[in-house]
Amino acid sequence: MDEPRDAAPAADERDAVPGDGRPETASQRADRNWNELLQEFRVFQTGTQIVAAFLLTLPFQQRFGELPPFDVGVYIVLVLLAVLITLLALAPVALHRILFHRRMKEQLVSYGSRLLIVCLAAASLLFTGIVMFIVDFLLGTGAGFVAAAVVFAVVVVLWIVVPLVIRRRAIRTLRSGAA
């Protein structure tokens, strides 16, 4: 027997966030958010995998044995950081496999989002450290620290300041439009 047309939609069929311009159910929203998150991880992983591969080739270079103890220590920290980032970036995949078909997509999205933020923070340290390592080797420790500070400042501006400014402007625009 058909349901009457004016019956209220089931809880999962309602618009997850009414008025946001995306008429989608909570499940559809979770699926979309999960797919967007996976795409972000794909982009992120490509860059960090290239960096990790670069790091893993260095000990096999002739001049690696000439590195002072400080540079060897920095190198080991960078390798460990690259491995940690790789493991963190793969964690959502493992979690998804374990929670597959358990109707926990919203939890996956929440956990994955937090993991990606941690990955980005760790990657900022990795990229800063790699620049310091290379410039230190080529030009000296002082230049290495200056170059690292510049890279870190660029990361902070691009990954934190700019998004916060954009978000603040959007909130102001919404508030002024609602008034």
Rank of each mutant, 00 (worst) to 15 (best):
D2F: 05
E3T: 09
A8M: 13
P9K: 08
P9G: 02
P9H: 09
A10Y: 13
A11D: 15
D12M: 12
V17K: 00
P18L: 00
G19R: 00
G19Y: 01
D20S: 00
R22D: 10
R22L: 09
P23R: 06
P23D: 06
E24H: 01
T25P: 01
A26G: 03
S27R: 14
D31C: 04
R32L: 04
Q39L: 14
Q39T: 11
F41K: 02
V43S: 06
Q45M: 13
Q45W: 12
G47L: 04
T48I: 11
Q49I: 12
Q49F: 09
F54C: 03
L56F: 12
L58P: 02
P59F: 09
Q61N: 08
Q62E: 15
Q62T: 13
P68M: 11
P69F: 14
D71Q: 14
V74P: 00
Y75A: 12
Y75W: 04
I76H: 11
V77F: 13
L81A: 06
A89Q: 03
P92Q: 03
H101T: 04
R102G: 05
M104H: 02
S110V: 06
Y111I: 06
R114C: 11
R114K: 10
L115A: 12
L116N: 01
L116Y: 01
V118N: 02
L120T: 06
L120C: 06
L126G: 03
F127K: 02
T128S: 01
T128A: 07
I130Q: 04
M132P: 00
M132A: 05
I134R: 03
I134S: 04
D136S: 12
F137S: 07
T141A: 08
T141K: 09
F145H: 11
V146G: 02
V154C: 12
V154P: 05
V155C: 12
V156D: 01
L158R: 13
L158N: 06
I160G: 04
V161R: 10
V161C: 08
P163K: 03
L164I: 11
L164S: 13
R168K: 10
R172E: 15
T173I: 13
L174H: 10
A178M: 02
